[in-house]
């Protein structure tokens, strides 16, 4: 018994898996309408948008040096507005607009990365500043001069823009199969099989040692912040397509939720520690929790509260168990 107990404490994945299963069983038994094919497949689409942002936070936090990205919500919003304005107001070709939007996300992430890695400014400060800047730019982009000086949402998209957020393949949402899963697989390959992963964990756990063993710390950090921009951009595109509207306040508060999920998934806030499997499980747990609570008729305002409880509770429990094990 003792060894099983120890394993659960030490192995974050196992701990999360058990948490996931417990929630799944509780909701299946206790909540009507939860355990249906439609609901189980349908809810996965909500996990994608937050999930991409949580993966972005994972990469950035892993890189250490106080790594964090407070600007993901703002990047998402600006990308959504760029895509929306290009399609809905400028009448540009949707595919081209989406490409421009995603390039904008890459660019924003790259700017964060340059400031963090080359100018050596702390990530919290860089991304706090860019949170303000990108959010402000999104508001400015959203202004339609024909209708006065106020930012306005864009909702007149052509039908073919909705495929990524609203179509299904075999009952499973398109964005889960063709964006989220590939992203997970690519990141898994990058982190676990490719040299980049070793560099990233090296830089995150011991910057000096990584530097002396010939790893370019600046380049690794530049890459992860740029990737965070790319993932936020994908998320912005998907949300816009799903809700059929680009709104200048769409990504408000997402950064906190994304960081919460990454940390819940076992990413050490100090860097260098954490796995993609853990974060994906974290996404699954939160998606499940949101969905189950909604079906159970619990008011939406408790979603955030439960997110907070799960975060603090799971880390607290972990610490408690670890402390007890020492005796």
């Amino acid at each position: 018994m003792k060894s099983v107990f120890n394993q659960i404490v030490e192995n974050r994945m196992l701990f999360l898996l058990i948490l996931f299963l417990i929630l799944f069983v509780i909701f299946s038994v206790g909540v009507r309408g939860f355990f249906t094919f439609y609901n189980l497949t349908n809810m996965t689409q909500y996990g994608v948008e937050l999930g991409l942002l949580a993966l972005a936070e994972m990469l950035v936090i892993l890189s250490g040096g106080g790594g964090i990205d407070l600007s993901v919500g703002s990047m998402l919003t600006l990308v959504a507005m760029v895509i929306g304005v290009l399609i809905g107001r400028a009448g540009l070709n949707p595919s081209l607009s989406i490409i421009i939007g995603i390039l904008a996300g890459l660019g924003m992430g790259c700017v964060n990365g340059i400031l963090v890695s080359y100018l050596r400014i702390l990530p919290l400060i860089v991304t706090l500043a860019s949170l303000y800047i990108y959010k402000s730019l999104a508001l400015i982009v959203a202004v339609d001069p024909r209708f006065g000086p106020n930012p306005m949402p864009v909702s007149n998209f052509p039908e073919n823009f909705y495929f990524v957020g609203q179509f299904r393949v075999g009952g499973i949402p398109f964005q889960v199969l063709f964006i989220f899963l590939p992203v997970i697989l690519i990141l898994y390959f990058l982190l676990e099989k490719h040299a980049f992963g070793r560099y990233l964990y090296g830089v995150g756990s011991n910057e000096k040692a990584a530097l002396f063993s010939g790893i370019s710390v600046t380049r690794v950090r530049l890459v992860v912040y740029t990737l965070a921009g790319l993932l936020s951009a994908l998320s912005g595109w998907i949300i816009t397509s799903r809700i059929a509207s680009a709104r200048p306040d769409i990504g408000l508060g997402y950064e906190m939720q994304a960081i919460t999920i990454a940390v819940l998934g076992g990413v050490n806030i100090k860097g260098g520690e954490g796995t993609i499997g853990g974060v994906v499980l974290g996404v699954a747990i939160i998606t499940l929790l949101y969905n189950g609570m909604q079906l159970a008729g619990i008011h939406q305002i408790w979603q955030l509260g439960s997110l907070g409880l799960v975060l603090v509770g799971s880390v607290f429990l972990n610490q408690l168990l670890l402390a007890r094990r020492k005796f």
């Binding site: 008011h299 509260g305 607290f316």
Partner: peptide, 27 residues
């Protein structure tokens, strides 16, 4: 208390509390 006695990193404690307190406030 959570930071000092629970030994939980401050960003995690206060991030959690940010959400919990907001929910209580809505209620």
């Amino acid at each position: 208390s959570l930071v000092a006695y629970g030994k939980i990193p401050p960003i995690i404690v206060t991030l959690g509390m940010l959400n919990i307190i907001r929910s209580l406030l809505f209620q």
